[in-house]
Amino acid sequence: MLEWKWAYSLEILPRLLSAAVNTLIAAGIGYLIALVVGLVFALLQRTGVRPVTFIVREIVEFIRSTPLVVQIFFVFYVGPQFGIRLSPWASGMIAIGLHYASYLSEVYRAGLDNVPKGQWEACKALNLNPVKTYFRIIIPQAIPPSLPAMGNYLISIFKDTPMLSVIGVAELVHTATTIGTETYRYVEPYTLVGLIFLAISLPAAFGLRRFEAWVARYFGMTK
């Protein structure tokens, strides 16, 4: 019935490993977009301009409560309908970047809210302008406590990259499926993909926990 073919596994492993590199690149780019756009979302919600706050808040809620895979399809297919053709990679990065930007904006928001009110008052008393207040005083204090949550989302984004396979980004799952259809063997490719995911995300999660403890020690001291 079932047999695990070692030779076959070894044969497809290099292809899967190079696909794993694509997966990591996709996660990395998506995360960078999310970090920047997420901060923009968070800051826009604090402008004090009611309509802006409301609209951004609703956009964030909408993105957060709907499936990433539908969003990926949406970004990929809607462009051509209006004459804009985006590559699978570009649409994938936009979709996953925006999706996680909405999560990260909540992390930033919590971080910013947690900076004591006295810090804002001290900035005002010292006459620092709003931009300097944010970038020199408030954000540097908001980031360290947010680092663990930010790290968690990096791991999450990595685990969500297989969804990019639906529009043909050649990451791990897409490659495994391609191999499967070529050879009619799915056991080895899908199992290896699972193992590769574990091999990356378990150490990453472990590392993150160590990092979290370090953050608590290092930044706890300066609080």
């Binding site: 079932l2 685990k159 990259t161 799952v173 056991v187 899908y190 699972g194 995911f197 574990l198 999660a205």
Partner: peptide, 23 residues
């Protein structure tokens, strides 16, 4: 650790495509 360490999509494919081979 296993289910949080891998992707839902991978788990789904594995259950649907690979488990049948185990009967």
């Amino acid at each position: 650790e296993f289910f949080r360490g891998t992707s839902l999509l991978v788990q789904l494919y594995w259950i649907f495509f690979v488990l049948p081979l185990f009967g």
